[in-house]
Amino acid sequence: MKRPTPIEAAKLFIHEQFPTCQAALLGGSVVRGEETATSDLDIVVIDEHLQTEYRESLISNGWPIEVFVHNMKTLRHYFQSDYKRARPSLQKMVSEGIPLIDHPIIDTIKREANHMLRDGPPEWSAETVRMKRYFLTDALDDLIGSTNRGESIFIANSIGELFHEFVLRSNRHWIGSSKWIVRALHEYDPQFAKEFVYAFEQFYREDDKMEIVRLVDSVLQIHGGRLFEGFSVGKDH
């Protein structure tokens, strides 16, 4: 039996599970036209009858579903939490979401989400940039000095996380995790994202570290280069 379309399945789910909710939105890859064979339905529900938020994964109408259930207070709390960590997962779901139930509150939460996405995350202080520069330098030195292939692989993984965060946060752009690292970099600068992927491909395929080293150094140079000597945390002066 053919399963319903994403919209049909999402509306059925809301009708069955949240018949008294104030609002519901379908977000995620299916609304961006980026779904894969393993994509699920991401659904945000606003229900003022609930005292606290929750998240649940389940199967309904032939679809895997992740539902994020909030009242307005908890939704705004998570907006702030995502803002501070610079990963606007909930804001993106709300911003791109297709309404499953018509309600004026949808315009309000979409407007709030869009304002946050447009304005970007909090600016890093000079001290934070300095600290992140030090940790990126430390990881880069580890990679350069490593002679163990297995260790080098996981050092490179760590650099990928630290480096993408440094580039994006020092330019007041949102960061990502997993597949969203490359997507976030592409939103910031498609050419830089291409160079980033190429550098790590060279290492993973050819065991060539130099493209990673070159690219990291080119970014660090803008902020004063690698940092080791003179860095300290918590020292009384």
Rank of each mutant, 00 (worst) to 15 (best):
118 R>W: 01
77 H>C: 06
86 A>S: 14
81 S>D: 13
66 E>C: 05
60 S>P: 01
103 H>F: 08
65 I>F: 09
98 I>T: 14
55 R>W: 07
107 D>L: 09
77 H>R: 12
113 A>F: 05
62 G>Y: 08
79 F>C: 02
93 M>V: 01
85 R>S: 09
103 H>S: 12
58 L>P: 04
58 L>T: 13
102 D>T: 12
110 K>S: 07
104 P>M: 05
61 N>M: 00
120 G>C: 06
109 I>H: 03
56 E>Q: 15
61 N>D: 12
67 V>P: 05
113 A>L: 06
80 Q>P: 03
101 I>G: 00
87 R>E: 12
63 W>P: 00
89 S>D: 00
64 P>H: 14
61 N>F: 11
103 H>N: 15
102 D>K: 15
100 L>W: 11
96 E>S: 08
81 S>M: 12
83 Y>M: 06
81 S>F: 10
76 R>S: 03
55 R>G: 14
72 M>T: 12
66 E>G: 14
93 M>D: 02
102 D>L: 14
110 K>E: 08
63 W>V: 04
86 A>Y: 05
107 D>W: 01
87 R>A: 06
77 H>Q: 11
72 M>W: 00
90 L>Y: 06
56 E>Y: 15
104 P>L: 08
97 G>Y: 05
102 D>G: 05
100 L>K: 04
96 E>A: 10
98 I>H: 11
54 Y>V: 02
55 R>E: 15
101 I>H: 00
66 E>S: 14
102 D>R: 13
69 V>T: 10
106 I>L: 07
92 K>S: 00
64 P>T: 08
103 H>C: 06
117 L>H: 05
109 I>L: 11
110 K>Q: 13
115 H>M: 09
57 S>D: 13
118 R>K: 15
118 R>V: 00
54 Y>M: 10
96 E>V: 02
56 E>L: 14
113 A>K: 02
101 I>T: 10
73 K>W: 14
71 N>R: 06
103 H>L: 07
84 K>L: 15
100 L>C: 04
85 R>W: 00
119 D>F: 13
62 G>T: 09
55 R>K: 13
